[in-house]
Design a protein around this nucleic acid. Sequence first.
DNA 1: TCTCTTATTGCAAATAATTCGCAATAAGAT
DNA 2: ATCTTATTGCGAATTATTTGCAATAAGAGA
Lengths: 133, 133
Amino acid sequence: MKGASTYMLDTLQARGYRVTKTRRELCTELAKASHPLTIRELAELVNSDEASVYRFVHLLQKEDLVHEITTRGERPRFEFKNEHHHHVVCTGCGKVAHVPCAYTPQVPKDSLSGFAEVNDHDLTFYGTCLACV
Amino acid sequence: MKGASTYMLDTLQARGYRVTKTRRELCTELAKASHPLTIRELAELVNSDEASVYRFVHLLQKEDLVHEITTRGERPRFEFKNEHHHHVVCTGCGKVAHVPCAYTPQVPKDSLSGFAEVNDHDLTFYGTCLACV
DNA sequence: TCTCTTATTGCAAATAATTCGCAATAAGAT
DNA sequence: ATCTTATTGCGAATTATTTGCAATAAGAGA
């Protein structure tokens, strides 16, 4: 996943943002992570200050380069936004893994009372990982 | 939805918890809400202290009577746990509505690396409500 | 109904998460 | 090499969530 990191950085640069050491490292971590990361995890990985990580992750969100995953009772996690996929969360230890998107859930048209359109979805499964059985 | 409120209270009492005025009111609000509520909304509705609401909602969670809904960038919301359904969230104003569960998403068996079992899921759609178009 | 025990509440204070302000630094344009 | 200004780090301000404790009230038993 080397490409993902450079893709993010190139995109940012093309949009007028600066590429700094911290940003390069954060993008590298996001690109190589096998599961979504919290702000704190990111800050520790690149050993930078949390406030800066919050700011940068929010920038990536605004630029539509990362996806925010929220799970019950946990802090939000972020991951590079490439092909759409789902997640499984272990209710024992909080471990999060990817699940390929087998098909795209649809909202029954007639049940969309009060909504004009739907363009995205998050699907999260909850279960028990092998270590927590 | 009168039954939902008494169901929750009866269940709690049967399990040895006390039924108080605040709890009755909180259950009533949860029972009649048409969308999941935040701790703050609940506290304002019954005009009680937030700390107590946190405690009670956590109790309801432990007793498996409410369901926690987490959406991107928002505070967690809670709702009475009856028939399973999904949600649509407006990315403009945060409004949340119910969506009946048309079918139950499954995890492809072979893609569950590292997990022993999956027993639950949350599906949230993101879109734009009529008022925010 | 009255009394007693103790779960629950409200309030204040502690802790955790997120955001903000600002001076120092360093990208990148010229 | 210089200059402009976006970005960082740090501290402090908010906001969210949890905790401790004394006062209250639910519900069991007399």
